[in-house]
Design a protein around this nucleic acid. Structure first.
Length: 227
DNA sequence: AACCACCCCAACCGCAACAGT
DNA sequence: CACTGTTGCGGTTGGGGTGGT
């Protein structure tokens, strides 16, 4: 069914938000709370559609938004989570407090994708002398399996497909070439002993994957997984 | 200084799932 | 159950900034 996109509605402003609009929206949400976006434009007196208001709040005005450059630790986590989850930006953002899915998506598309592609070229040409950071190790693992010497590292498909768009069925869950950084491969070992029923891709793609994952983490790995 | 090409990122769009009636 | 409205997500776009010539 067709929705009502902002573009089809007459009388709504489009484009960049002014400082005045920001203040109106911020004041309204502080007074009334988040949610019920459909009532926000009228309630706040904004000539913006509900979705535009929601997006502006979530991606820019929210008080817990973290400003400034993405740190090396965050970048590394993004790469590793992307290897695990694919383009599930909201899930990735959920593991990076203060960062939005839009911000991470932009960062990936403008910075990290090039890095990953660049590393891929390096590896195929045999020039991997620069492969010494954790992120670079992630890529090595992504392309060629883990570097820890184990033969059958666990792997985690995204949307039923692996990194290269190949479909996976549940039964192939642990047989695919690893997407994981070497340290991630180690981290996921506890899951190999978990109830397999809990680890089907459908569940992994839900947030409770992380609950399962974290609950199986050895203590010494907790700080590694977090930042 | 003027022009151009490129890059970044805020915002928009289409789609699907969910909720309410 | 069908229909309609709402919300959330991921892909894409385009305006503004920046660097190079």
């Amino acid at each position: 069914m067709r929705r009502n996109p902002c573009s089809s509605k007459e009388g709504f402003n489009k484009g960049s938000w002014s400082a005045t609009e920001d203040k109106i929206l911020t004041d309204y949400i502080r007074a009334h709370g988040e949610g019920r976006w459909g009532k926000v434009p009228k309630g706040a007196g904004l000539s913006r559609c509900a979705r535009s208001c929601r997006l502006r709040w979530l991606n820019y005005l929210r008080p817990d938004i973290k400003r400034g450059n993405i740190s090396h630790e965050e970048e590394d986590l993004i790469i590793r989570l992307h290897n695990l989850l694919g383009n599930r930006w909201s899930l990735i953002a959920g593991r990076l407090p203060g960062r939005t899915d839009n911000e991470i998506k932009n960062y990936w598309n403008t910075v990290l994708k090039k890095k990953v592609q660049g590393q891929s070229v390096d590896m195929h040409s045999g020039e991997d002398e620069r492969m010494n950071s954790k992120s670079q190790e992630t890529i090595r693992c992504l392309k060629f399996g883990n570097s820890t010497g184990r033969n059958d590292p666990p792997s985690f498909p995204q949307d039923g497909k692996n990194k290269f768009g190949e479909s996976l069925v549940d039964g192939d869950f642990f047989s695919e070439t690893s997407f994981l950084a070497p340290e991630d491969c180690d981290l996921f070992n506890p899951l190999m002993d978990s109830n397999h029923e809990e680890l089907c891709p459908r569940h992994l793609l839900d947030l409770n994957f992380f609950e399962i994952f974290e609950s199986n983490l050895p203590k010494e790995h907790e700080t590694l997984w977090w930042w």
